[in-house]
Write a protein that binds this DNA or RNA. Structure first.
Lengths: 192, 192
DNA sequence: CCCATGTGAGACATGAATGTCTCAGTACGG
DNA sequence: CCGTACTGAGACATTCATGTCTCACATGGG
């Protein structure tokens, strides 16, 4: 395919490899580079040509997760309409990336050391702002901090992805169950 | 200390090592056997005298986690009083073990293969029964399955432990925040 | 005092995953 | 048809955690 290299096909293949790796590592976070390569249908050598090493692969996965999160945040238009509806849109938009998020969430070695990607901070801030907005408009209760609601959102996303992959809950109920639990806990209630 | 061996001191030391390992692995799940040993204040050789290998250590941790969970389940008296109060007692009782639970929850290699410990099934069943009871008495909504509520409970416990260890939420709020979110989502509400 | 037990320190071999390299086969464009 | 570019297969060295071993030291009881 000569010299069309970096603009077109390489990018496509790289993205395919990345998504295969995400799908595999979601299920088996200790998978070998060889397993990752086979899952993507390529050889270990080619995998190393795309990603210098396992570390680079995980970093690329992190970048992908951040990009998908931010795309979901944009698509959910968090500033519009009631905060509860925005939360619903957000979870729905982020659902396809939940497995990848769950993997990254448990890959705590990403966060040791000061070199942690600032993308997470940006995402945290946007989600926290959403919950804060809901509190300001009186939709959400104020005794649960935005930071905790954000953290719980990640946790429920991860639990949901794991539960679906184990067959404990139906995939079609994913968004509904997470949103109902999250909003049920966040919303103000007229009577206890 | 001659031949008092297995009944007394060995057990105490073993338990101390186990708890040190739990505390360390909660923060860094990839810690080396050497790091685990140093965290417990013993040498790697002595650690290997207690636990044949890393696998045996993780299995022992799993057994400890199961034992603590079941102790918490017993202490919470899930059959007594309103289901919501039972959930509150359960989360409070399980809080000290939340870090260990979070580690075991993400150690998904425990669940690959058919040799998974049946203790988890027993615990799942008891928690699910609690949520089912709440649904039967009309306290909890029925559109969220007991299996999902149980899964979400684990996820929130893990998220809470992680958030506390990161300083994102205060340790004293741990139980409150988890219970309010879980119950807020589980409870039936008179008006949407 | 002497012996037994447990311990720490360290050497050593092993196995697995990783990273690097070469080489042959293939596909595509010129 | 030829040459370039990419790929897969495999060999190879390296690194690291692990598991096993020996030996010296300390403690505590007989």
């Amino acid at each position: 395919m000569s010299h069309m290299g970096y603009g077109c096909l390489m990018a496509v293949d790289r993205d395919h490899v990345l998504r295969s790796a995400a799908a595999l590592l979601t299920r088996k976070s200790t998978a070998t580079m060889d397993e990752v390569a086979r899952a993507a249908g390529i050889s270990r050598a080619t995998l190393h040509r795309h990603f210098a090493g396992r570390d680079a692969l995980v970093r690329a996965l992190e970048a992908l997760g951040i990009a998908e999160c931010e795309a979901a945040l944009d698509a959910a238009r968090l500033d519009e309409g009631p905060a509860a509806e925005a939360v619903r849109r957000l979870v729905g938009a982020i659902e396809p990336a939940a497995g990848l998020l769950a993997f990254l969430y448990t890959e705590n070695q990403l966060f040791e050391g000061e070199g942690q990607n600032e993308g997470w901070a940006r995402i945290d801030e946007r989600i926290e702002a959403l919950f804060r907005r809901g509190q300001d408009t009186g939709e959400f209760r104020i005794d649960l901090t935005p930071a905790w609601l954000t953290e719980a959102c990640y946790g429920l996303l991860a639990s949901g992805a794991w539960a679906v992959s184990e067959g404990r809950v139906a995939a079609r109920d994913f968004t509904y169950m997470i949103v109902e639990l999250l909003l049920g806990g966040a919303r103000r209630r007229k009577e206890p």
